[in-house]
Design a binder for these strands. Structure first.
Length: 417
DNA sequence: TCTGGGGTCCTAGGACCC
DNA sequence: TCTGGGGTCCTAGGACCC
């Protein structure tokens, strides 16, 4: 049995923790660069503000209803997420942090106590972290996701749903569209519609061999999981990533090479940091730049490049990323976005030594360890390469920033006696 | 005046090689 | 003159998740 806990409107709820005056009021959170809506409080949803709607299209609507608007504030969300996860670890030693606001855990205790357990989890999260949560419990991850979906949407206000018997989950499967199933989105749903599969129940009872023709092996697993047979286990130690990307849109479009070089340097450093965090080394990088796909003359280029030996040294990776992006850049285009991926990775533990090349020096490794230690202690970005630039005029727009209540000394909330 | 995210994995198709 | 397989690497883009 698996429980899935997920926070309602997580980003919006984070802002409400420090702005209790906004509880019960419409709140929206915008994506990076204030591009579009990525989170809405319940009240904002009730106003008919669609998810993923471009901000410029709904400015008037937001104003009319006096909706509170926030730029996204990832340091804040990351910190509150860690508090949620810490609280949940108190309930079970077996947990998997699935996303910033979702955790799978194996519910302890006998089956007849699970409903009480779910309520206790929900109430504790509210009491200790002021986070509103939904809890779903079922025999597989896919059904637990579905239970959570039901907890949030179909039994208004309860926020808890236990699907521990076939008759219970079958009742749900017959009543939700196939797109409510984890891993099935629009494109796959259209292909399934060609096989007359519309509801989750249609998928659960479909012939796996027939479905395999329009989907992949993951879809076959989904069918198994919908029938209560677990294929996906709790990943307590997240598997190492096979690719690590860092990509970002610019706050203002870049026509010159210099800002593109600075941006790609920052992204390279960020990707190298993630690489070191999983104790990996990179052999191949992938770099891309492109203009706005919404404008005519869309221009997009990408290229891969090889490092001389597996490395996690930010200087090596940055130098190669800059050299590569120079080859992609063309004057006369207004670039919107750039990114880098570390796409061929090796584990430090299983490194093959090259007879003719010494590989990364011990000095480099020690320097990287020192940089990471300083940045962990003094805050992200304390030590960085000059190649990233200092004033960063291309950095993302955030016109509706909230304070970093929990991660910056001068932003700590003041409580009056 | 302008404004459409970020991450990971997978696959199709072309180029090239043996 | 026309025809042939299989593997690898690369770029581009699809698909899904939050």
């Amino acid at each position: 049995m698996i429980a899935l806990v997920d926070i309602n409107s997580f980003y919006a709820s984070c802002h409400q923790v420090f702005r209790p005056d906004l509880r019960g009021k419409p709140v929206v959170v915008l994506s990076n660069n204030d591009g579009f809506v990525v989170a809405r409080s319940r009240e904002a949803k009730a106003l008919g503000i669609p998810d993923l709607e471009p901000f410029f299209k709904i400015g008037q609507l937001l104003k009319k209803h006096r909706v509170a608007i926030f730029s996204s504030n990832y340091p804040l969300y990351g910190d509150l997420s860690a508090r949620v996860m810490d609280t949940l670890r108190g309930f079970s030693p077996n947990v998997e942090v699935y996303s910033i606001d979702e955790m799978f855990l194996s519910p302890p205790g006998p089956r007849e106590q699970w409903e009480d357990l779910a309520w206790e989890i929900k109430n504790t999260l509210w009491r200790q972290v002021r986070m509103p949560a939904g809890v779903g419990i079922a025999p597989t991850k896919t059904l637990a996701k579905l239970a959570n979906h039901v907890a949030k949407r179909h039994r208004q206000g309860t926020g808890v749903c236990i699907l521990d018997q076939p008759d219970k989950w079958q009742w749900v499967l017959r009543r939700v569209p196939v797109t409510a199933v984890w891993g099935v989105a629009g494109r796959m749903a259209r292909r399934l519609a060609g096989l007359r599969i519309h509801s989750a129940w249609d998928l659960a009872t479909a012939n796996a061999k027939v479905v395999r023709r329009v989907g992949n092996v993951n879809l076959e697993r989904t069918i198994e999981e919908l029938n209560g047979r677990a294929c996906l286990s709790l990943e307590e130690l997240p598997p190492a990533k096979q690719q690590i990307y860092c990509t970002r849109s610019f706050g203002r479009k870049a026509t010159e090479l210099q800002p593109v070089l600075e941006a790609i340097s920052l992204y390279a450093a960020r990707a190298a940091e993630k690489l070191r965090a999983q104790r990996g080394l990179a052999l191949t990088i992938h770099v891309f730049i492109h203009t706005s796909p919404h404008q005519p003359d869309f221009f997009s280029r990408s290229a891969t490049a090889q490092l001389p030996y597996p490395t996690d040294d930010v200087r090596r990776i940055t130098a190669l990323a800059r050299e590569t992006v120079k080859g992609l850049y063309r004057p006369g285009h207004a670039f919107l976005k750039a990114g880098i991926g570390l796409i061929e990775l090796v584990d430090r533990q299983h490194l093959q030594f090259d007879l003719f090349h010494p590989g990364q020096s011990e000095r480099s490794t020690r320097l990287m360890t020192a940089i990471d230690a300083v940045n962990r202690r003094q805050g992200k970005g304390t030590l960085f390469l000059g190649a990233q630039g200092v004033s960063k005029p291309w950095y993302m727009r955030q016109h509706f920033s909230s304070p970093q209540y929990t991660t910056r000394w001068q932003d700590i909330p003041v409580v009056f006696a």
